[in-house]
Design a protein around this nucleic acid. Structure first.
Length: 113
DNA sequence: CGATTGACGTACG
DNA sequence: TCGTACGCCAATC
């Protein structure tokens, strides 16, 4: 099969959309699940392009491994990302997700590899 | 066309 | 334990 890098981006969007409501995941988790491992940066790059997609990608559910809303600046420059997370019942404090480890959703685990 | 940046993560000192 | 360096790959300057 031809796994183009374009598919990688598409795969990232697919995984992010699979994130359950009220759950969050990390860039590295997705990258690892896709097999890219260290290419976690590309996941963030994919999120950057997700704004132009017709279907809304819950990028607000994707944070870094520390649970910090590192990409909140790309949600309109406001606290929109935090607001979206709180709307799902996720407690966000100081631009960081509380009990992140508890809310963490690992695709490798959820999809059972 | 070459150098730099970027929504990260891991490795090494 | 904390701090710094590197890798990754694509897009932008």
């Amino acid at each position: 099969m031809e796994r183009d890098k374009n598919d990688f981006f598409n795969n990232v969007y697919a995984v992010v959309r699979l994130v359950p409501h009220g759950r969050v995941t990390s860039y590295g988790a997705i990258a690892r699940y896709l097999g890219t491992g260290k290419s976690s940066r590309m996941v963030g790059w994919a999120m950057n392009q997700c704004h132009g997609l017709a279907d809304p990608v819950p990028a607000h559910r994707v944070v870094n491994r520390l649970g910090q809303l590192t990409g909140k600046a790309h949600f309109g420059g406001g606290n929109e990302m935090q607001r979206l997370l709180e709307a799902e019942g996720i407690v966000v404090e100081n631009d960081a997700i509380v009990a992140f480890r508890q809310l963490f959703w690992d695709p490798s685990e959820a999809l059972e590899i």
